[in-house]
Design a protein around this nucleic acid. Structure first.
Lengths: 123, 123
DNA sequence: TCATTAGGTTACCCTTTAGTAACTCAGTTA
DNA sequence: TAACTGAGTTACTAAAGGGTAACCTAATGA
């Protein structure tokens, strides 16, 4: 699992270590909509592989942003949810989204977003 | 130079492509304090190598977040500054910093920050 | 007896990112 | 004539990140 540094020059680099990479913000996004099972997430994000899904969820869990609940059944049932601290990141994600959307619009980049800053503004 | 994707699932992934990596937010941070020359940045961030500094500045420039001004002199003089659009990112960086600082405090991670969210709150 | 289920793990490989060290350019100073 | 200046470039190497395909578990249903 990805280890955080023991010291950072800038808090933003810590944030990037926590939520950077190809899948984490997407996972946090979908988990903020509500708790989800492993294969539910796979269906929601069909491009992610099992390996990456477990790996990224385990890191989010290890860093305290996501909670993993195992029900001892066969076949197994595992439910993922965001922690309180993970949920505190939402406004930050909104801010990033809005700026990113402005950039995308300015540069003509297509946004097939599950969610955009613009959506948020309208709510 | 790092090419952006032509399409993103989530604006946040675009933002991470724009400011992710080891050096960019640090560079944006220092350039927001005021325009700086190449070797001035090297002195401000002694750990960065020339190669990474040019590379990262060139990407920030290519993505329209930083402006590069060359004065045709010998020895050369090159001044870097943030663009208007780059400056619009500041509040987002603040938000990220504050959340990152909370995380660092909670987890006992040391912050040798040029700047922290806490500083901002006191201003 | 065999396949199916959910939620993984493992070995292997390729690509991207970051770092090192040497080299360049043209004019100024010693 | 040689060294120094600022702002780089280049070739090479090491490390991190991401992807593929095969395998595992224990109970259930056909």
């Amino acid at each position: 699992m990805k280890e955080l540094q023991s010291e950072y020059q800038c808090a933003i680099n810590l944030v990037i270590d926590l939520i950077g990479g190809k899948w984490k913000v997407l996972l946090l996004w979908h988990l903020n909509e509500g708790d989800k099972r492993f294969n539910e997430l796979r269906r929601t994000i069909p491009e992610i592989t099992k390996k990456m899904l477990t790996q990224q969820l385990r890191e989010l869990e290890g860093h305290g942003l996501v909670k993993r609940t195992v029900f001892e059944e066969v076949p197994p049932r595992v439910v993922y949810s965001t922690t309180d601290f993970g949920r505190k990141l939402q406004p930050v994600l909104y801010g990033m989204c809005q700026w990113g959307d402005d950039y995308a619009e300015k540069e003509g980049i297509q946004m097939n977003s599950c969610w955009t800053g613009r959506d948020f503004m309208q709510k």
